[in-house]
């Protein structure tokens, strides 16, 4: 399988060969690429980012770890139901998802 590594901006072209349980990866510029390719073949994951309303402005949010790719749109549904209340700090947990990731604040808003 041919893949493009999305872990860093170099975007190495990877090839992954699946043989039973083992995945052999080539073309990766660093070990993170091998890990990415293995995940991509077995359980592809992505970090989801968006913004939610917070008083008169909007707060950037993200999943604090990647979630299964197939759940991206269910994750967006959860994000659409959220509102934040100032003050909020980077890392504050707004929601716990069933996929082991929290939806957290990715910006700071001091006053309401």
């Amino acid at each position: 399988m041919n893949l493009t590594c999305i872990i860093c901006p170099l975007g190495c072209s990877l090839t992954a060969e699946i043989c039973g349980e083992t995945v052999t990866v080539a073309g990766n510029g660093c070990p993170r690429g091998a890990e990415y390719a293995k995940n991509e073949c077995t359980n592809p994951v992505r970090t989801v980012t968006a913004t939610v309303p917070c008083g008169k402005t909007r707060l950037p949010v993200k999943t604090d770890r990647p979630i299964p790719k197939a759940e991206i749109f269910s994750c967006m549904d959860r994000i659409h139901r959220l509102t934040a209340v100032a003050p909020v700090k980077i890392g504050d947990i707004l929601d716990k998802t069933p996929w082991g990731a929290n939806i957290v604040a990715a910006g700071n808003i001091e006053e309401a």
């Binding site: 872990i7 860093c8 980012t49 913004t51 950037p60 993200k62 980077i90 990715a106």
Partner: peptide, 25 residues
């Protein structure tokens, strides 16, 4: 950066993947 809410910033400088606003902060 404040409007670039996607992640992928800062791997080079901070060794972690940040969103635009997090990098700015």
């Amino acid at each position: 950066l404040q409007q670039c809410v996607h992640n992928g910033f800062g791997l080079h400088t901070f060794g972690e993947e940040l969103t635009g606003p997090e990098y700015a902060w």
